[in-house]
Design a protein around this nucleic acid. Structure first.
Lengths: 229, 229
DNA sequence: GCTTTTCTTAAGCTTTGTTTTAAGCCTTTC
DNA sequence: GAAAGGCTTAAAACAAAGCTTAAGAAAAGC
């Protein structure tokens, strides 16, 4: 049960990277150093990270690009650690999906406290990746990001896939439109929006194309959507 | 559907409090100023807060005590805003359950960005309020938004569902029509309205369709409604 | 840069839910 | 035990939520 917590440390400076890893180890977490942007990207897809520490100034690739890749990938908590200390950098990072911003030079204990604080809240969120979800004759393989209905592979777009994985991860739960929007799009929902409907409709079509008799996703009027059991 | 987000602003300085409220309003959230620790505590239990901004230096009561009360109460996200800028204060706050620490003087845009960042995550995680309400043979599961009477699933509309959850959450309490209306509809009640009656009737019908002998909701003449024990 | 795919927006339409209306039914009070 | 006021109910009118389609915009892929 005592699962290890994996933290990716993206920082080109050798000494600082080692220092960060040391801090992390001291708190009983499992650090993985990455010394460049490209190295970071390699690790990114390789496993599920519980948290990422990211330096914004990297050789080869800008930290901002990495941040974009991370947020695109899912909802991994990110702490930016940077010497680029201007207001704009800070705010842009936070707006782009970072959860915290620590300025260099940093205080060892503060870094540790902020890591703990973030993990305390979000430890339990990232548990659904890297497994196979099954519901009726839908098989969703999270690792290869493929979906089979009745043995037939179907091609979903990113949005459709994310909606499906959300619903399938908690098959009894009812997700409101705003739930869905905020989980899948990662931004606040403003009520007059039709795009969830459209994607839901498209997803349903793709699912039922294979097996027209079956209804997979049900609508709970005024409440939202749920996998039909 | 488009729920408001309530933010409690605990800060004794009038100008700063107003400034913070202004920032919050600009982001379409709903701020509530509290100018002292005691005032903050009053508000704390009064409703469910999505986020709390907390100044550490308050007259009468120390901010640390408030923080303790907040974390004790549940998992409301807290951002500390403080002029006490020493390392120890920062780290203690974070270790005591705060999610972020902003030093005074603060930058308006940074505050805004950090609020958004925290809410973005919090709203995803806080949806697992998986509670089940039981009254006689009625089982109400909040996560799946389903209601069972004597083991049989019954289909309720949103209004009916909300009325039932209200009554079942406080089964001994008598709810006046205006109570019900204001809780379920979220707007002030004007006495000459019959709609609560209608929905109550429909709800009773659906409940007693399964089990006609049982009376679940009783009318207290001139007072309101209550779950019948 | 051009092509292809995917996403978003908007409109019209269908389904479902809500409110109003109004008649009749209980309780209470005098 | 009749009048008054509150409560219930059923049905009609209305409103809202959801679905589908198609077309333009944006993004991704080549």
């Amino acid at each position: 049960m005592n699962q290890t917590i994996n933290i990716l440390v993206v920082e080109d400076d050798n000494d600082i990277n080692q220092l960060l890893c040391k801090i992390i180890k001291k708190s009983q977490y499992d650090p993985q150093p990455a010394y460049s942007g490209t190295e970071a990207l390699l690790y990114l897809d390789k496993q599920n990270w519980d948290l990422i520490l990211l330096d914004l100034m990297l050789p080869g690739m800008e930290g901002e690009q990495i941040l974009a890749k991370i947020t695109e990938k899912g909802s991994i908590p990110v702490i930016i650690i940077s010497a680029k200390n201007e207001k704009e950098t800070k705010i842009n990072s936070l707006r782009s999906g970072a959860d915290d911003f620590i300025s260099k030079p940093f205080d060892v204990d503060e870094v540790s406290a902020r890591i703990d604080s973030l993990l305390r809240r979000y430890k339990h969120t990232n548990e659904t990746s890297n497994q196979e979800l099954i519901h009726k004759d839908i098989h969703l393989d999270a690792e290869s990001k493929t979906v089979f209905v009745n043995g037939n592979k179907i091609m979903l777009t990113v949005r459709e896939y994310k909606i499906l994985i959300l619903l399938m991860a908690s098959p009894k739960k009812v997700f409101s439109k705003s739930n869905v929007f905020e989980s899948v799009w990662g931004e606040p929902f403003h009520g007059d929006d039709n795009t969830v409907n459209v994607h839901m409709s498209n997803l349903r079509n793709k699912l039922s194309k294979v097996n027209p008799k079956e209804e997979y996703i049900e609508t709970i009027w005024g409440m939202g959507y749920r996998m039909k059991s």
